[in-house]
Structure formats: structure tokens, C-alpha cells
């Protein structure tokens, strides 16, 4: 890896900003350079909120990334906006609980993950972001599984019940990602 860019996009409250931050914290833990840039422009209610995380072995130049290596889209408007922007050869992770579509592109890898449902089954729909994150990390190997668990522990350590839910949902997302990538590589 030299540099990897991912845009996390959804509606306000889905935890896309936090998902990006958790990834950035993991990157720092592994000694990498990171930049986390949120969207802060005027947005209408129900519109998209997104952040971009750049993780790199080298000094990071532009924090603005128009065509990221990967996108995790949490809702339909984000899917419409960002699916066409993923760099050719990149990765698109689609929250299939809320998006009943896949991108009409053959030049990227797509993983459809029922993240909301997975989070609900794990104990809280609010952990949707962590399911997406687990899947993303499994599919890219951008940071290690154990690094992210450590970050979750640090951030949620005081709230044991919440930590347990998030670790479970993260694992579920991670295993989903592993099997999705596995299937692809066998195909």
C-alpha cells in the first residue's frame, strides 16, 4: 500500500463521520499518515453527509479526493452520488438494507452487505457503521482487524454493553467481507 482513500457517505445520524474517524485512529495506531476530511457544506435535511479518509505510507498531499479508491455508501442518495466516482479498479460497499441497487459498473468490486440488519441482529441498529467498517477492513486489509478492535475498546471501553455490541457487529461485518472477497477470488 502506498495510499488508500475511502469515502464514507450516508445521511446524518448513520455514523459515517465516526466510521471514518475510527478508521483514521486505526491508521495512526499502525504508524501511517492519515487525513480525515468531513463534508461541511450546506446540505438539505435528508441529504448526504460524508467524510473522506486518506491512509498513506507517504506524506499526504491533497485532502480533497474526487475519485477515491473505495466508497462505503449507507443510503440511496449517497449511492447515486458516489458509486460513479469510485476509481476504476476500486471498491464499492453498499448497505443493501437501505439500497436495493448495485452500480452498473464492471470495473470495480462491489459488496452488498445488509448492514442495518446485521447491526439489529447484533443488538443495535446504531452500529450499522461498524458493520460497514468491518466489511471494508476485511475487503481491503487496510488496517488489521485487531487494531480496529483496540480502537473500539479505547473509544467505548467505559460503556461495556455498547462495546460488546459493537465488537460483535464489527466481527459480523468483517466475516461478511472476508467471505465476499473469498467468493470473488474463487470465481
Amino acid at each position: 500500500m502506498k495510499q488508500y482513500e475511502v469515502t464514507m457517505a450516508g445521511f446524518g445520524g448513520q455514523g459515517v463521520m465516526v466510521a471514518g474517524q475510527l478508521l483514521a485512529y486505526s491508521g495512526i495506531k499502525e504508524g501511517k499518515n492519515v487525513v480525515w476530511l468531513p463534508s461541511y457544506g450546506p446540505e438539505m435535511r435528508g441529504g448526504t453527509a460524508y467524510c473522506t479518509v486518506v491512509i498513506s505510507d507517504v506524506r499526504i498531499g491533497s485532502p480533497i479526493i474526487n475519485n477515491p479508491t473505495a466508497c462505503c455508501v449507507f443510503n440511496r442518495p449517497s449511492f447515486d452520488k458516489f458509486a460513479p466516482k469510485v476509481k476504476s479498479g476500486g471498491l464499492l460497499i453498499v448497505n443493501s438494507s437501505l439500497i436495493s441497487a448495485s452500480a452498473d459498473r464492471t470495473d470495480i468490486t462491489q459488496i452488498l452487505i445488509p448492514a442495518n440488519q446485521m447491526a439489529l441482529e447484533g443488538g443495535s441498529v446504531r452500529s450499522t457503521n461498524v458493520a460497514m467498517l468491518g466489511c471494508f477492513i476485511a475487503a481491503t486489509g487496510i488496517v488489521e482487524h485487531k487494531t480496529m478492535l483496540k480502537v473500539l475498546e479505547e473509544k467505548l471501553g467505559a460503556k461495556k454493553a455498547l462495546l460488546e455490541i459493537n465488537m460483535n457487529v464489527f466481527d459480523a461485518g468483517y466475516h461478511f467481507g472476508i467471505s465476499a472477497v473469498g467468493e470473488r477470488s474463487h470465481a
Binding site: Q21, A24, I28, N33, V34, V35, L37, P38, Y40, P63
Partner: peptide, 10 residues
Amino acid sequence: DGMIGQMMEP
């Protein structure tokens, strides 16, 4: 600019 204000870095 707004990016210096809003972005996060180590």
C-alpha cells in the same frame, strides 16, 4: 481555509 479548520490529522 475551511479545510485546515475542519480536517483531522495526527
